[in-house]
């Protein structure tokens, strides 16, 4: 059983002291970003509103990126990842890259 990593986008953690920086860790995933490919989203596109399928797809993708980042941090023996940032970049026509990055740290209980 792998220990749980603490994830935060702040620089400090309550109740812990950061004793060591293990460097930057990151995870990414690339997905097709063009909407309106399937019929439901195509219809929804005409009348407007939330495209639920895409919300799910993208949050799943982001979870995947976070998971890859966490795996990298675990390999370094980290206890937490601090100052996490999410970003989206368009690497090619019709595709979006979702990535997450942060600093892996070792902790000590205060």
């Amino acid at each position: 059983m792998e220990k749980d990593l603490i994830l935060t986008n702040m620089e400090t953690l309550p109740g812990h002291r950061i004793v060591e920086h293990l460097g930057l860790v990151q995870g990414n995933t690339i997905r097709a970003k063009h909407i309106g490919r399937d019929i439901m989203a195509g219809l929804k596109n005409i009348v407007g509103g939330e495209l639920k399928g895409y919300t799910e797809l993208l949050s799943e993708a982001r979870k995947e990126a976070t998971e890859r980042m966490s795996r990298q941090a675990r390999e370094l023996g980290a206890d937490a990842i601090v100052n996490i940032r999410f970003a989206t970049s368009s690497v090619m026509q019709g595709a979006a890259e979702l990535f997450a990055y942060g600093t892996a740290v070792k902790l000590e209980k205060e």
């Binding site: 935060t8 986008n9 400090t12 109740g15 596109n45 939330e50 993208l58 999410f86």
Partner: peptide, 24 residues
């Protein structure tokens, strides 16, 4: 703000996302 509030005990990452389209 980047500061932790007084008496913070536990912190974790939370998120929310949405895809919204404009009508034709």
């Amino acid at each position: 703000l980047k500061r932790l509030p007084e008496g913070a005990q536990e912190a974790f990452l939370a998120s929310g996302s949405v895809v919204l389209s404009a009508d034709a």
